[in-house]
Amino acid sequence: MTSTWLPPAEYIKTIAQATSYACLYFTDTAGRPVQLRATYSAEPWQWPGGNMDPGESPWQCAVRECLEETGMVFEGEPRLLGTHFIGHQGEAWPANHIGFIFDGGTLTDEQIDSFVLDPAEHSELQVHTMEEWEAIMTPVNFDRLREIDAARRSGTVAYLER
């Protein structure tokens, strides 16, 4: 049997395509998750983050997006809390979507109060207990929050698939 090697540009067209995002997960000093309300999404509660730019690593994306969305220069070390895979959703999102959620650590009230949100992307910031978040989030989005929070508390890494 003979194999025919394709040039990389041709081979890439034959395999699954994906977009990717990266974000930072923060809590306050009481361990409560900090989230931003997106102005553009059916899943409104999010962490500072967004889609990766060409040539950017997941970590670089998370740090850049945090600065763009909160005004905070994040100087922590990369610690992966979870990877999130969302399969091809037809016309709604015609590619797989892969996310990298990093630990942003614990923020003081002063740090949280200093966030400057981009009104084109986020309308507010909220901090709640897990029970309070469960009451206001969609079940799918809350499942992601619960798994990432558990990974952080246990020192493990979560793999989420939707």
Rank of each mutant, 00 (worst) to 15 (best):
L6Q: 15
P7Q: 12
P8I: 09
A9D: 11
E10A: 15
T14D: 14
T14K: 15
A16N: 04
Q17P: 02
A18S: 12
T19I: 07
T19M: 13
S20V: 05
Y21K: 05
Y21H: 09
A22R: 02
A22Q: 03
C23M: 13
L24I: 06
Y25A: 04
T27K: 07
D28T: 05
T29C: 08
A30E: 08
A30V: 01
R32N: 15
R32W: 10
P33T: 00
Q35F: 10
Q35Y: 07
R37H: 15
S41D: 13
E43I: 02
P44G: 04
P44N: 06
W45C: 05
Q46S: 10
Q46K: 12
Q46D: 04
P48E: 07
G49Q: 02
N51T: 07
M52W: 02
M52E: 04
M52I: 04
M52V: 02
R64N: 13
C66L: 08
C66P: 02
L67R: 09
E68G: 07
E69R: 03
V73K: 07
F74P: 01
F74H: 14
E77T: 09
R79T: 09
T83A: 08
F85C: 04
G87M: 12
H88T: 00
H88Y: 09
G90I: 09
P94E: 12
H97R: 14
I98G: 00
I98W: 01
I98E: 01
I101F: 08
I101D: 06
G105W: 15
L107P: 00
L107K: 04
T108R: 14
E110N: 11
E110M: 10
E110L: 09
E110I: 03
Q111R: 09
F115A: 12
F115N: 12
V116F: 13
L117W: 01
E121N: 12
S123G: 13
S123F: 05
E124I: 03
L125G: 00
L125R: 01
T129Y: 08
M130T: 02
M130Y: 00
E131D: 15
E132G: 12
A135V: 08
I136K: 08
I136D: 04
I136G: 04
I136W: 13
T138R: 10
T138L: 10
T138V: 03
P139V: 00
R144V: 13
R146N: 13
A150N: 08
A150R: 14
R152K: 15
V157T: 00
A158T: 05
L160A: 07
L160K: 07
E161M: 09
R162K: 14
R162S: 11
